[in-house]
Amino acid sequence: MPLLDVDDLTTYFHTRDGVVRAVDGVSFNLERGETLGIVGESGSGKSVTCYSLMRLIPEPPGRIERGTAMFDGRDLLQMSPKELRKVRGDKISMIFQDPMTSLNPYLRISTQLIEALQMHRDIDSKAALNKAIEALEEVGIPGASKRVFSYPHEFSGGMRQRVMIAMALITEPDLLIADEPTTALDVTVQAQIMEIIKQRQNDLGTAVILVTHDLGVVAGSCDKVLVMYGGREMESGSADQIFYRPRHPYTRALQKTIPSLQEKGQELFTIPGLPPDVSKPIHGCAFHPRCPYPKIGSPEGERPQLEDIEPGHCWAACGFCDSSAPIETVLAKADDHVAEPVDGDA
């Protein structure tokens, strides 16, 4: 039995301007100790997926419409608030994108660090404080026994994210959900933070859901990958499958955007166009308007069904384009089209 088994997770926001289909039928699972990467552009529903699992969606306007999320044999989506509080911070912890706003500026680091322990463990404050200092040392904060009494504003962004990691892992949870833990940080610090997460994961055997919009980060650190677009699952599989045998045009295009995989001196590739507006119903394939592949048939139609390609590897089998060729040839052709008239003029 997997540690976490999510099936058909669907979360909508019922706003004044209509229904925002932020997450629309997403499924994935995760074994103990495994790392799942969730990738996709801004607005693709990655955060809402995570918050839905933790039931941190603001309700109203948000609502989890359907689906199950079996964690350790129990459905997170059906738990009472009381049961949920026992799971949060104990069995499942979360770190957030912006470390500058995720710590309470009015409370000492020590108070915030030991809070989860006090909540979930039978522990006196002296022992809890020692554990907090230990936790800070483990994420590489020098002078932890003194700095534990600081306030968040006395720490830099990178240090605060270390504190967040220490805080999330202090109860040694089974699952850590990290929602873009490095996006708000300096490039130099990003690698350090990822390193710390990985190292603590190895020490504790924690399973991790790592959200990012950078497929490059996923390559180095994930066992499995879920590619999301417009609130939907586009493709999922092992890291190898997604990297070496991407099937969906969106996955392929996303891969082309990884800076380190692009040829030096060339202009950075970005997918032209904008992500879909999920407050309007999407017909057919969500990626269709931006898809570089030759289109076949009308874009209106049934939503592509998830289809297995090989064991553990599936994609939203899109019948609206001819995606048999590798993306390089398609993009090269597109370049030629753009280039031709210029040549003619010269």
Partner: peptide
């Protein structure tokens, strides 16, 4: 940070 606190239970 209220969300952080909720996430801690």
């Amino acid at each position: 940070w209220v969300r952080t606190a909720r996430a801690k239970g």
